[in-house]
């Protein structure tokens, strides 16, 4: 378990370089996952509708 660094009243919790690097990597992964999810919902919506869009009553 990682140790919590001593608090500095002004700086708060100070992360090490390694902790910062891993947090950034996790954030990037979450961003990529969210983007993929958006694309998936878009694709599923389009392909579920299929030709019904053209066939709907106008």
């Amino acid at each position: 378990m990682a140790m919590v660094e001593p608090h500095d009243e002004d700086k708060g919790l100070v992360l090490t370089e390694e902790q910062l690097r891993r947090r950034k990597a996790r954030n990037v992964a979450i961003a990529v996952a969210l983007f993929v999810l958006v694309v998936l919902f878009y694709l599923v919506t389009v392909f579920k509708m299929g030709g019904n869009v053209a066939n709907r009553p106008l």
Binding site: A2, H7, L13, R23, A25, R26, A29
Partner: peptide, 21 residues
């Protein structure tokens, strides 16, 4: 109280993306 709360909390996560994979 702040010192006690800090001691009770886990430290900042060291998990990498590869760990979640």
């Amino acid at each position: 109280n702040r010192a006690q709360a800090s001691a009770a909390l886990p430290g900042p996560s060291l998990a990498g993306v590869e760990d979640f994979l």
